[in-house]
Design a binder for these strands. Structure first.
Lengths: 352, 352
DNA sequence: ATGAAAGCGCTAACAT
DNA sequence: ATGTTAGCGCTTTCAT
């Protein structure tokens, strides 16, 4: 009964018809003006924008997604939000995505069971994400299949897949790790331990390999018992260091697979009344904000979350745009992010 | 040209019609079965679920939102994702929301300018969130107006608004802060300093007031210069402590408005070669994971993110459900979350 | 209890 | 360059 044009002005929110009638054009013209999809004369375009402003109108994204098939939502899956590296990564990604008109669907929970992965994939599929950044650094293979089957573009860290829709971000740990080892060697260390991350993480495995080759290049002999498993958590670092402490032949320095581990190490060293860096040098990896405030401030291998977020977004954008154009073929791409040593106060020459 | 029933089976994904025809029912029956909105006979219901399973069908949320006007998306706005308190809060909220079938729209960026607030509100409005948890602990007044004008249910921490759609979570800082002050007094401290948070945060103001009344109750005389401004960051805590260090009459203990501040204090004390807790006792607030791993482990006032997330979700759910029922009036509610002292090793009796 | 049909707000194909 | 119109996939009256 109520005429179309009355809606929005009287009760509810303005819709595209409200704008059209106020601007005295068709709804198609309004749509075209907003999307810039096809030329609209300056005169009408101006009237439309004016009406939009006046009504404080904005399009209904659900209607838009429904008809266009494009949601303008990007998914991001991170490993463990408890590690400050990830919140910062999310914040960066969010900022970049939002400025480019995308919304984010974040999955930040700890992924452990297959059921959880199922839930995450389901969430992404239901909301029709246009692409997903999988920044779990490994252990995500099962996520992939389903997403890939739905031809959703993906970008992965540290893991290459032979699929044109799946891009990869390669992190050059080698540089930072080599700098770290050289730094220690230059200080006079020859007995360097390594606290590894979970073997399920590609990133952790790569970091370990980089350590092994860097020490080999420097001609160091690394005892097997100096390479101990940890799990990228504070407690894991503490436990790992305690194991090192029980060794007869102790290392004089320890490089950790991430900063959380290194902070755990600092804690264990303190409990064992081992002073850092006089009696033990410690190096972390990631350069999270806390490392400036540990006691002593932590020497660490920096990895920029902003660069990583940027690479992830760019990778997805290329793919998402390729999906939109009917002719364009998807192109798998590789992005690189580098690392570099940040020297603070947790490293010094070993005691004679 | 292609018949309806061929879609989904041949090329694209299954839609409600694919399910309907496979189950030999109408699409209305499929919809009713899925939503449990109206009685469907066991026989048909079973056929429908079978078809759904077989096709691996799930409804298109955009279509659903468009017609029902309900998006099943909840917004959450946090203050500063750099403080580990907030990621943990988000993760808790996400877990709860997802298990109840809601999706999350997270705004985690640092809020500073009015333009940023505008962007956040716009994002929420565009995606048609059904409710928003504003966990910025203050400085959010400008967010409110717009959201409230659109009659979107809100839940705020630490701030009451006279609007039936806006619920509040009250945090009982008094208990934890009193315990902290009593703990120090019992150890023999009488000169207690306080590093405050930003005055723009309601939470910070409340925390400060709790400190003032707790010390008053204990009969302590707190010098004005012992109450110094900080900003809830690591650097702010460090700077605040440095100011305290310059005082002629130094405090023997310091309570901080949050853990980040306290970690900054630990750092400043260490640089000044002041040992904690022998020469200075330090207490934080929040009980973030890192506090177990500071040197020394930090005594702090615990505030459960899980309880907070739970309260926020429950508050929103009540409101969201009230919005759905046409008859039900919105009811403003108040939720309470408590705090309590966690004693670790950063507090001890003052030196004689 | 079930089905037919209208229409949510928008985009895109088609017509002019 | 602009308008008309047919759906996008679903929920929800309204019939039966």
């Amino acid at each position: 009964m109520t005429p179309r044009s009355a809606r929005g002005t009287i009760n509810g929110k303005p819709d595209i018809r409200t704008v059209a009638s106020l601007a005295r054009v068709s709804i198609a013209t309004v749509s075209r003006t907003i999307n810039g999809s096809s030329a609209v004369s300056d005169k009408l375009s101006k009237r439309v924008w004016q009406a939009i402003e006046q009504l404080n109108y904005f399009p209904n994204t659900h209607a838009r997604s429904l008809v266009s098939g494009r949601s303008r939502i990007l998914g991001i899956i991170v490993e463990n939000i408890t590690n400050p590296f990830f919140p910062e990564l999310i914040a960066s990604f969010e900022e970049i995505a939002v400025t480019h008109g995308f919304e984010l669907l974040v999955s930040s929970g700890n992924i452990q069971s297959a059921a959880q992965i199922e839930t995450i994939v389901r969430r992404m599929l239901e909301r029709k994400v246009e692409g997903v950044a999988v920044l779990t650094f490994g252990s995500e293979e099962s996520v992939l299949d389903q997403l890939v089957n739905h031809s959703i573009p993906l970008v992965l860290a540290e893991f290459e897949v032979n699929n044109p829709r799946v891009s990869t971000i390669l992190i050059d740990y080698a540089t930072g790790v080599r700098e770290a080892v050289e730094h220690l060697v230059k200080l006079g260390h020859r007995k360097i331990a390594y606290l590894a991350g979970p073997h399920t993480l590609h990133s952790a495995e790569t970091r370990l390999h980089c350590f092994e080759s860097a020490t080999a290049v420097c001609g160091l002999r690394i005892r097997r018992e100096w390479i101990v498993d940890a799990d990228h958590t504070l407690k894991g670092g503490e436990a790992g260091m305690q194991r090192l402490l029980r060794l007869k032949e102790r290392p004089t320095a320890v490089i950790c697979s991430n900063d959380m581990t290194a902070i755990g190490v600092l804690h264990a060293a303190h409990q064992a009344r081992l002073s850092v860096p006089e009696e033990l040098s410690v190096i972390g990896l990631d350069d999270i904000a806390f490392t400036e405030f540990t006691l002593p401030p932590l020497t660490t291998i920096g990895l920029s979350r902003h660069d990583l977020a940027r690479a992830a977004f760019d990778a997805l954008r290329v793919q998402v745009e390729a999906m939109a154009e009917p002719g364009v073929q998807p192109v798998q791409r590789r992005f690189e992010v580098t690392t570099k040593l940040v020297v603070r106060e947790s490293t010094a020459a070993p005691k004679a």
